[in-house]
Design a protein around this nucleic acid. Structure first.
Length: 475
RNA sequence: GUCCCCAUCGUCUAGCGGUCAGGACAUCACCCUUUCAAGGUGAAGACACGGGUUCGAUCCCCGUUGGGGACGCCA
């Protein structure tokens, strides 16, 4: 039997980071077993579903490369089928009409809580004669669940889980308005879509027992279940808004690469020995449910950041130059062909100094900033009178460099430092400040080589002439 | 209140009866060095607790504690 998995998000705003991991595990499991991976939008609750939310989910999945193998199924389109299945159950005596109103049920629940009793539905209409039905009340249809015994879930991650049937009440299958509930829809849809493995969050573990009862009432084969642990925030509590980024898109805007996020999510709860950086192809080959951990894991941004740095370095320079353009644009920097070429050339020196695209763009901006540069406070501090004098003396030497390469520039600078009787750093640091406007940058010879003689000397002159102007003004 | 799940360094984890309890991130130190990174070397750092089972428990069983989840005519 060929494996069929599915990811079934409800469209409530964005693709949650936990949902992304569920999707990933489903995708990997299907790929590993050469099966199919499907998508189903659980939009049964029409009021809470919006086009924008659905688009956001597809967008997130697309970015991560986790779109379904076939067009997504919309649960709301199968309502007639759901109602038909409930009719069958009614006819077979596996379901019954319940005339209790929502108000009545709420009162029943409140009473149970006050009396510290179980809050399960008490089955008051289970055996009652429908003739006693109150006039004008549309009934909900409930499952006639087994009273005694237990329901067993053979979970691929959690192991065998047994739940006493006394703990499971007669759940609603069809609402009074004729719409199906989630519990019924999932079962029917998973069955109709031929889903063989249901891989989802831990919070559905008890639901698996309820759904098993529905499968059994229908005489359908129960799929294999795998309930993966939830992701917690850094403080150990459930991941929530106050932890910052929740949606996958937020990580995208923080400058993370999709392959890094995927690798991070994969290792969160799943492991393969001591392997940390795992390619997509390798993950497909290695992935299995048995290696999924049982405990909830905390989200660790530092770890994601480190992984991102690794993947950043694997990307070709040209790709990275393209990827950072949006962040550059946000700084008001638009690139021409020469600027792009300069960034590509600068990438090898920029890469190891950045962990995210945001940092990479920040580092890259020095190469494409417009003259004259705005100096940072620390850069200005480096350019005191003595430093400026050293730089002024350096200018003729630089102008004499015939081959503007890293090696030639270094030779020139070392020679000049010796001539001036200073350490290389005393020359290099002020030069860095003048050429980059900052106190930290890639190697200064590399910076000069990428900038070219014209831009380098130009930036240097900017600083020197500003100093002259300032001196004339005060003097 | 009832039921279910979980438990190894700060964090993610390896371990599947006998290990100096391994790796990674983070932290600290040193090296490299024109700055900042990167890189290299090293350090510190964990089996929640109590009972069993066993010649021997991180590992198997029970309990305690702690954490999480579920108990809707939400999904």
């Amino acid at each position: 039997m060929s494996v069929v998995t599915r990811f079934a998000p409800s469209p409530t705003g964005y693709l949650h980071i936990g949902g992304a991991r569920t999707a990933l595990f489903n995708w990997l499991y299907a790929r590993h077993h050469r099966g199919r991976y499907l998508l189903r939008i659980e939009d049964t609750d029409r009021a809470r579903s919006t086009e924008a939310a659905i688009a956001a989910i597809f967008d997130g999945l697309s970015w991560l490369g986790l779109l379904g193998d076939e067009p997504a199924v919309f649960q709301s389109s199968a309502q007639a089928r759901h109602a038909e299945v409930v009719e069958q159950m009614l006819a077979a005596g596996h379901a019954y009409r319940c005339y209790s109103t929502p108000d009545e049920l709420a009162a029943m629940r409140a009473e149970a809580i006050a009396a510290k009793r179980t809050r399960l539905y008490d089955g008051r209409w289970r055996e009652r004669d429908p003739a006693e039905a109150p006039a004008g009340v549309a009934p909900a249809i409930r499952l006639k669940a087994p009273l005694a015994g237990e329901t067993v879930i053979a979970d691929l991650v959690q192991g065998e889980v047994k739940i006493a049937n006394s703990q499971l009440d007669d759940m609603v299958l069809l609402r009074a308005d004729g719409t199906p509930t989630y519990m019924l829809s999932v079962v029917v849809d998973d069955h109709d879509m031929g889903v063989t493995h249901v891989i989802r969050g831990d919070d559905h573990l008890v639901n698996a027992a309820r759904q098993t009862q529905i499968y059994q009432a229908l005489g359908w084969t129960v799929p294999a279940f795998a309930h993966i642990p939830l992701i917690h925030g850094p403080d150990g509590a459930k991941l929530s808004k106050r932890h910052g980024a929740l949606g996958v898109d937020a990580y995208r805007t923080m400058g993370f690469l999709p392959e890094a996020l995927v690798n991070y999510l994969l290792r969160l709860g799943w492991s393969h020995g001591d392997d940390e950086v795992i390619s997509r192809a390798q993950a497909v080959e290695w992935f299995d449910l048995a290696a999924v951990g049982k405990g909830a894991a905390r989200f660790d941004l530092a770890r994601l950041t480190h992984l991102n740095a690794q993947y950043l370095r694997q990307r070709p320079a040209a790709e990275l130059a393209l990827l950072i353009e949006p962040w550059l644009a946000a700084q008001g920097i638009t690139l021409d062909a020469a600027g792009r070429a300069r960034l590509v050339q600068a990438m090898p020196g920029l890469k190891p100094r950045a962990a995210t695209l945001v940092e990479l763009a920040e580092g890259a901006s020095l190469y494409v900033a417009a003259r004259p540069l705005t100096l940072s406070a620390k850069a200005s501090a480096l350019l005191d009178g003595a430093a400026r004098a050293r730089l002024a003396a350096l200018v003729p030497a630089l102008q004499a460099v015939t081959e503007w390469t890293e090696a030639e520039l270094e030779a020139c600078m070392r020679h000049e430092a010796e001539r001036q009787g200073v350490k290389l750093g005393q020359l290099a640091q002020p030069l860095r400040a003048a050429l980059t406007g900052r106190d930290a940058s890639p190697g200064i010879f590399e910076v000069m080589a990428v900038l070219g003689p014209e831009e380098s000397l130009g930036r240097l002159q900017d600083v020197l002439s500003q100093a002259n102007a300032a001196a004339q003004q005060s003097g």
